[in-house]
């Protein structure tokens, strides 16, 4: 028997094309891969229309073989609303960072969620503006340093980290809100399951779903990838507790 026969055959990924531009250790690439795998598994690649944000993942559709539209900063949910209503047979996903969704786009996400729009939001929270070089984000932790809070974030001047799942959980319309993370294999698998559930909700026409993914930014946090995942695990989850907030 040939040795190669012992190596299990994995199907070629249909959606995820790899070779991303993200910094070494960044969670975006992992999340892209998970999203690609889930879409492959559900067999919906050709139906997906993804709305990219402004931020590091502005180039997401270079790596995921979907149709897509890149929206202005924060406006992905508004674009997704129109696309989904005109093409209800398609699977519409917005992929947004914390600056995009929780600062400039707060309005759009709250109102899309409140209208119960039938699309899926993948919300990456890494507590910093990555693409512009590490400024304070609405989700930056108290005391956390950034280029615009060089001595750390103080609540007195900058308020508190904004909790998006908890905020949207005050609305009646959303059907599924869960916060997950990517800091170890167990949580990566949970993230995969959450993405699948959120997409199934859309396929089955249940309603608005959002998966918040706690991720890292080793470059702007000035940490090694290992240190950054420790920070996510030990510090971020204290402020942003993991779990299902809404499942109806």
């Amino acid at each position: 028997m040939r040795v190669s026969a012992l190596i299990p055959k994995y199907p070629e990924p249909e959606t995820y094309m790899g070779h991303t531009h993200y910094c070494p250790g960044c969670g975006h690439a992992t999340l892209h891969k998970l999203l690609g795998e889930v879409v492959d598994e559900l067999g919906i690649r050709k139906r997906v229309i993804m709305i990219e944000p402004v931020g590091c993942s502005v180039l997401a559709l270079k790596y995921l073989k979907f149709d897509g539209i890149q929206g202005p900063h924060g406006r992905a949910p508004a674009i997704a609303t129109a696309v989904k209503r005109l093409r209800p047979e398609s699977i519409v996903i917005t992929y947004q960072g914390d600056g995009d969704l929780a600062a400039i786009g707060t309005n759009e996400i709250i109102h899309a969620a409140n209208r119960g729009e039938l699309f899926t939001v993948v919300f990456v929270n890494n507590a910093v503006y990555g693409m512009t070089g590490g400024q304070m984000a609405p989700t930056t932790l108290l005391g956390q340093k950034s280029t615009t809070t060089p001595t750390g974030r103080f609540a007195e001047f900058c308020g508190y980290p904004l909790r998006v799942c908890e905020l949207l959980n005050t609305l009646d319309a959303p059907v599924y809100l869960e916060r997950v993370s990517l800091f170890d294999v167990e949580h990566i698998l949970k993230t995969r399951a959450a993405l699948k559930k959120a997409l199934l909700n859309q396929i089955e026409g249940r309603g608005f779903s959002l998966v918040e993914v706690l991720s890292n930014c080793p470059t702007n946090w000035k940490m090694t990838p290992e240190e950054s995942w420790e920070f996510v695990k030990n510090e971020m989850t204290k402020v942003f507790p993991l779990g299902v907030f809404r499942d109806k």
Binding site: G99, Y129, T132, G133, Q135, T147, T148, P150, F157
Partner: peptide
């Protein structure tokens, strides 16, 4: 924050508090 203007905000966040000014993101 917006590229390519970020260095202005970043330096302002340090300089304004030094001179009694207000910096808000």
């Amino acid at each position: 924050p917006i590229t390519p203007s970020n260095e202005i905000a970043e330096r302002m966040s340090v300089r304004l508090p030094q001179v009694g000014g207000i910096y808000i993101q």
